[in-house]
Nucleic acid binder design. Structure first.
Lengths: 236, 236
DNA sequence: CGGTGATTTGAGCATTCTCAAGGCTTGTGG
DNA sequence: CCACAAGCCTTGAGAATGCTCAAATCACCG
């Protein structure tokens, strides 16, 4: 399903403004931007999964945030033009690239657009805050369950979940880089979930959350409260 | 030193706009906002230290980000009005509270103001990304050295560092909540630094970084590159 | 000078990591 | 259609980092 139908307000507004916007595409594995690059622009993801990543000098990689279709992010701004992260394609992607200067003019249409962008920034910060919380204090099971639920909630909001099941294009290694575990321990944890009947793998690129209540229990979240925090509350 | 002189452009612009802005004050230990509260506003810190915090159900607290004088943060926005974090005073503070609606109008003065705000958001995201990176992969020494250097760089940018030394109003417990270590292990790590001559404590509320190069080595950062990423590059 | 809260140090324990090896799946070329 | 290669998943065993519990010391404040 094209995300345009879901996020039609934001995308529609952008296109209405006749901004010099063109859709770009990149293949899985490509790096759109590298840490330290100059980038005075924002990005709206239309299709696929993107990861903000950082590396320690020793080569350890960390995924800071995963962008899903419809998500918006500021990569850099005029007075802070250095990208703090790399931006890697976890799957094939389509996105809009938006120069900062185009979004900050006096134009009544932009007021509404900026409201939406502010909401997305707040949502992103909320997600990252949850990630930090879990990395600091939580067990491997907690973090893994949380990651599966976060993706579930966000994908559900854009109609990418069917029958508690969604497309999962990343490896256990990458999931580990996201939640802060070794690939080995991700595997153990997921296998444990599977054997307990919490999740299953209909095929190698999908995951199904069979017992969402149990996962919420392990992750320590109330699904409804959680969704309120990390999703943009769309204007009616 | 009043931060107004340093951040005069941002504060000055705010005051110039005759926005209905008034300075608020709160005492150390106070909670300005709680996780889940409605908050459709932003905040500009003038003096003192603030912490964004979150808690797991079991009671484990995590500091997500520390705000220092001059820092700006969006707490919530119209379409994402629920605060994802609590906001606690690590010291006595003075700050401006700014309703979102006031910052998003058609007004030439606001264009420049929004540029500054965008830069602060990017800087905050960069800091948080670094924090996530370190929580995921780094040792206790790395994380502790990093935290000390992050505060050093940020405080230096607002002239709050003298002779490699700065005011440090938080406990080891709180530092642990920030870097994701137990208070016991923070203590061990800091004592090790002290015995190795990397840091010292001129008095109980100050810390001095005696060997910054060694700390950078441990934290795995290049101070100049790092400053470029996490600081706002001020317009000339 | 007692009391409260913070820091310091020790000892044992637990979670997760690293290293290693085997199996499975997918794609490619003969 | 089969053989092989590459990448990913799975499982085991030992090692290490950081945690918890506990107790002693220290600093500040009324």
């Amino acid at each position: 399903m094209p995300v345009e139908s879901v996020y039609s307000d934001l995308v529609g507004r952008l296109l209405d403004l006749t901004l010099p916007v063109h859709i770009e595409t990149d293949a899985k594995g490509t790096s759109i931007i590298s840490e330290g690059d100059d980038a005075d622009k924002s990005l709206l993801l239309l299709e696929g999964w993107l990861a903000f990543t950082k590396m320690l000098p020793e080569g350890e990689t960390q995924i800071i945030d995963i962008m899903l279709p419809g998500d918006f992010a500021i990569l850099g701004s005029e007075y802070a033009p250095v990208s703090a992260c790399s931006l890697d394609c976890l799957s094939d992607v389509r996105y809009l690239s938006l120069p900062s200067s185009r979004l900050n003019r006096d134009d009544p249409n932009l007021i509404e657009l900026r409201k939406l962008m502010a909401a997305m920034i707040v949502a992103t910060q909320a997600r990252t805050a949850e990630l930090v919380l879990r990395k600091g204090n939580a067990s491997a099971a907690n973090r893994t369950a949380y990651a599966l639920l976060e993706l579930f909630v966000r994908l559900q909001a854009i109609n990418h979940v069917q029958d508690k099941q969604y497309h999962f294009p990343i490896t256990q290694q990458q999931l580990g880089e996201f939640v802060g575990l070794s690939n080995v321990h991700v595997c153990r944890t997921m296998r444990r979930f599977e054997r307990s009947g919490l999740i299953s793998h209909p095929d190698s690129t999908h995951v199904k959350l069979d017992d969402i209540d149990a996962l919420c229990e392990i992750a320590g979240i109330d699904l409804e409260v959680f969704a309120n925090e990390i999703l943009v509350r769309r204007p009616a």
